[in-house]
Design a protein around this nucleic acid. Sequence first.
DNA 1: CGTTCTAGATTGAACGTTCATTCTATGTTA
DNA 2: TAACATAGAATGAACGTTCAATCTAGAACG
Lengths: 209, 209
Amino acid sequence: MDMTADAPPPSVDEGSRAAVRRTQILDAATQCFRTCGFHGASIARISRLAGMSTGHIYHYFANKEAIIAAIVQRDLERIVTVWAELRASRDVRETMIALSAEGVGDHLDADAAKLRLEIITEAARNPEVARIVHAADCCCMASLIETLRIARQMSGMHDDDATLTSMAEVLAAIFEGLSIRTIRNPGLDREALAAMVQRVIRWTISSPD
Amino acid sequence: MDMTADAPPPSVDEGSRAAVRRTQILDAATQCFRTCGFHGASIARISRLAGMSTGHIYHYFANKEAIIAAIVQRDLERIVTVWAELRASRDVRETMIALSAEGVGDHLDADAAKLRLEIITEAARNPEVARIVHAADCCCMASLIETLRIARQMSGMHDDDATLTSMAEVLAAIFEGLSIRTIRNPGLDREALAAMVQRVIRWTISSPD
DNA sequence: CGTTCTAGATTGAACGTTCATTCTATGTTA
DNA sequence: TAACATAGAATGAACGTTCAATCTAGAACG
């Protein structure tokens, strides 16, 4: 249960020691939040898992909310990066279809789904978290819309912004909905579902106007 | 702020007074849970909104978890009923498309979405709630699968169970995903999105095998 | 009809626990 | 030694839950 591994101060090279500590805390908190939720996870639990005292947490974060905000930020930054990479790829259309399989797997993963839901639910009641979530969403959706525009142009289709936006919203809804499905119905057939999602995506890209 | 309306004992006709009280508590709790979350809502808050003392809550519910479970149950029973009605309708295919508009509106409603997310997130950490949620989901999905089978047969398509199940999962994911979308991006265009969802549903019903 | 009895409804203070946060003291490094 | 890192006990607030006391409405009875 103890993950501390008494992190050796000698091998500290990535930035300051503070950065390492911050990451330790964020990692521990992420795990706690997954199992107990944002409000069910206590600072005592997080600090134990991070291998430090409760009080020390407050050297790196002003309060528990700041930890939540930082985790949300870190999680979303990762996703925004993936989207940026996708948009930069050569054959956007095929990359998109290929990546969708990965995306389905990601959203069906129980652990990842739990944290995602925890974040969204927190955004529904915490305006600060809502702000962060919305900002990240704007980035991702802009990427998705442009990717979609290119993919559909490749299929000879030219759509206005409103149409592309709605398409993107539906695609986003499918993926994010999968995280709910995996909670409601843990026994679902992941492979069959992935195939069906790909089928819908193909159709979305190439459907007539 | 006071919803009590000192419920007149004379006009009590629906079952016992206890049933009325139980409903009062559940209504108040629902509202609290929407704004503060399952764990952020205190018994004190709920009892104040329900117009009774904290202690009295425990005459009707063993503990806070039981209130959560009851709300989840009540919410899901409503949905299961809607699905049962849909399945019993005549022109299933058109009823399905028509009802989808209603479904989109329902899932995009911020208040409804908040409670739905609260429930799912709780199911992700509370096995008892997960059990209730899964049981209700089985009912709804069975209805959806049969509805889908009939609708596709009307379009001349005959699918095996696995295919229908995956289709149903994707449709469910779209709707439930909308609740996440409305949190992430509150400014989305509801009408355009509803139209796009209907387009996807039409295609799903009539797409070739 | 008036009185008494009683069971359930209802209250609000009290309890024990847990939690986030603060404070003080000690260790470490440069 | 000066500045920073770390620990862990202390604090006070908030919470879920319990409980003994009070109220209320109607049944039983004379």
